[in-house]
Amino acid sequence: MGERKVTVAAEVGLHARPAATFVQRAKLAPMDITVAKTHGGGPVNGKSILAIMALDVRQGESVVISAEGEGADEVLDELAKIASTP
């Protein structure tokens, strides 16, 4: 299973527009994608806007994005870039 640890840079955290952009990209992937805070809580569905918003990830917090399957590395790189963009 591939994964990326990312520090969220957006001022609003992984909420609103950054969350929507993240989920839109995740939904294009053929594999399951999960997101978890590095400090507490289990992984949630990375294709669910409600699940991502419920994580309550704030600016400066880190998350682990995971995916498995063909093309996972490319998808993970793109999702990590979205999450780490200010």
Rank of each mutant, 00 (worst) to 15 (best):
S66L: 00
G69S: 07
S62W: 02
S48N: 05
Q59F: 05
K81N: 11
S62L: 01
I65E: 01
V44Y: 09
L76H: 03
G69I: 09
A72E: 13
I52D: 08
A72Y: 07
L50H: 14
A54V: 01
K47Y: 08
G71I: 12
E78G: 03
K47C: 08
L55R: 13
L50C: 06
S66R: 15
I82K: 14
E61P: 00
V44T: 13
D73P: 05
E61G: 01
A54E: 04
A51S: 15
R58A: 08
K81C: 00
E70M: 08
E78Y: 03
G60H: 05
I52P: 06
I52W: 12
D56H: 03
V75Q: 11
V63H: 03
S48C: 02
G69F: 06
S62Q: 15
G60Y: 05
L76S: 01
V44E: 13
I52S: 11
E68N: 10
E68M: 04
K81A: 15
V64D: 02
A72T: 02
M53I: 15
N45P: 03
E61A: 06
A54K: 14
E70G: 04
V57K: 09
Q59D: 02
S48V: 01
I82R: 13
E74D: 10
G71S: 11
Q59T: 12
L55Y: 13
A67S: 15
A72L: 01
L79N: 11
K47E: 09
E74F: 03
E68Q: 11
L50S: 14
R58D: 00
N45T: 07
G46F: 06
D73E: 15
I65T: 02
V75H: 03
A51Y: 04
